[in-house]
C-alpha cells in the first residue's frame, strides 16, 4: 500500500506522451485509409514522435535520435511494400515513405549535429 501516504500528492506521476501517442494513431489511420497525404504524414509523425518521447522518458534510449531512425526504417519498409509491390497503393505508400524520410532526417541530423548532453 501507500508507504508514504502523506507525500502521495507530491510525488505523483505524469507524462505528456500517452495523449499524443493516442492522438497519432487515429490521425494516421484516417489519413492512410482515406488517402489524404498530409494527414497521414502528420499522424505518423505524431505517433512515432510521441512514442520516441516515451521511450526516451522511460530510459530505454538516451537520446531521441536512434528510436527515430528505427521508426524511419519501419516506415520505409511498410511504405515500400505499399508503393512498389503488387499491393500497389502508390499514394498511400508515398505518404508513409515521406513520414519515414522526415523521421530519418531528424534522426540522422540529430545524431550528427546536436551536441551530446552529459548524462545527469
Amino acid at each position: 500500500m501507500d508507504e508514504q501516504p502523506g507525500l502521495s500528492d507530491q510525488y505523483r506521476m505524469a507524462s505528456p506522451w500517452p495523449l499524443f501517442v493516442a492522438l497519432g494513431i487515429p490521425i494516421a489511420e484516417l489519413g492512410i485509409l482515406f488517402d489524404v497525404f498530409v494527414v497521414a504524414v502528420a499522424g505518423l509523425l505524431l505517433f512515432c514522435g510521441s512514442l520516441t518521447g516515451m521511450i526516451r522518458e522511460a530510459g530505454y534510449a538516451e537520446t531521441a535520435w536512434r528510436p527515430l531512425a528505427v521508426f524511419a526504417v519501419l516506415l520505409f519498409a511498410v511504405g515500400g511494400v505499399l508503393a512498389f509491390t503488387d499491393v500497389s497503393l502508390v499514394t498511400r505508400g508515398y505518404a508513409i515513405l515521406t513520414a519515414g524520410g522526415i523521421l530519418a532526417a531528424a534522426g540522422i541530423g540529430g545524431e550528427l549535429f546536436v551536441p551530446k548532453r552529459d548524462p545527469v
Binding site: Y11, R12, M13, A14, P16, A58
Partner: peptide, 26 residues
C-alpha cells in the same frame, strides 16, 4: 523499464489544472 516505482516516469509533482488530467499516468 516501464515498471512501477517512483523513478522513471515520475515527474517532480503533478501539474495543475487541465494539464494534470491530460498528462496523468496515476
Amino acid at each position: 523499464g516501464g515498471a512501477a516505482g517512483e523513478s522513471g516516469y515520475v515527474s517532480q509533482e503533478k501539474p495543475t489544472g487541465i494539464s494534470r488530467w491530460l498528462t496523468t499516468v496515476d
